[in-house]
């Protein structure tokens, strides 16, 4: 699978998932017909994505974990329909997939934001004021640790050590480490992510 196609897919997917999700979260008075069309589009799209990823592994059930990881990395989370599709294609019972998906922390069964915020609250970062950083982020994004905002922009999580205690307090955004944070610096960093 070439890179461009994957990228194209991310765009398409998140956009549609966002639409679907706002539908779910706001009052559902909007025309039902439109709803259904959107739902069908998401279905088709995710199905295609899954089929492509499964084909990469020649449909082997032993590659289940890798397939799940791939879908997680492209789609940011694993919708229930996706699990059902994988179960069907690989002939692996859904209960086993559910066991695996809930076992590993790398998987999410709820929608995740495009940007993953990790705030270190380990001992070293804590004494250097990690709680203030966390408060700032919580206020700026309006979400608490472990949550995702409605626009699917940010997912916030606390971690216990990122292994660079000399740089604390540390905030990690999409794998990029922001060192020696202060509340002001934190809000500036957050603004750079749209």
């Amino acid at each position: 699978m070439d890179k461009d196609r994957i990228d194209g897919n991310i765009e398409l997917n998140t956009d549609q998932v966002i639409d679907g999700n706002i539908e779910l979260n706001t009052d559902q008075v909007i025309d039902r017909v439109i709803d259904r069309n959107i739902d069908q589009d998401i279905d088709q799209d995710i199905d295609q994505l899954i089929d492509r990823i499964i084909d990469n592994y020649h449909g082997q059930a032993s590659a289940l974990l890798q397939i799940l990881l791939d879908i997680q990395s492209v789609n940011n989370w694993l919708p229930g329909k996706a699990l059902a599709r994988i179960s069907e294609k690989l002939e692996v019972p859904l209960s086993r997939i559910q066991h695996i998906v809930t076992f590993y922390k790398a998987f999410s069964l709820v929608p995740k934001g495009r940007h993953k915020l990790h705030i270190c609250v380990g001992t070293a970062c804590h004494v250097r004021g990690a709680t203030r950083i966390l408060d700032t982020v919580e206020q700026a994004t309006g979400i608490k640790s472990g949550e995702t905002d409605l626009d699917l922009k940010f997912s916030l999580e606390t971690v216990n050590c990122l292994g660079c205690c000399a740089l604390g307090p540390v905030m990690e955004v999409d794998g990029k480490v922001h060192a020696k944070m202060s509340p002001i610096k934190t809000s500036k960093v957050l603004k750079t992510y749209g």
Partner: peptide
């Protein structure tokens, strides 16, 4: 899993949070 082969119930989560869970569809 082994006898009836229906796989309608399975474990979810891990550690102290591990519990059994029926798959509603099945």
């Amino acid at each position: 899993d082994e006898v009836t082969g229906k796989n309608a119930v399975g474990f979810v989560d891990r550690g102290i949070n591990k519990e059994i869970s029926f798959i509603p569809e099945i």
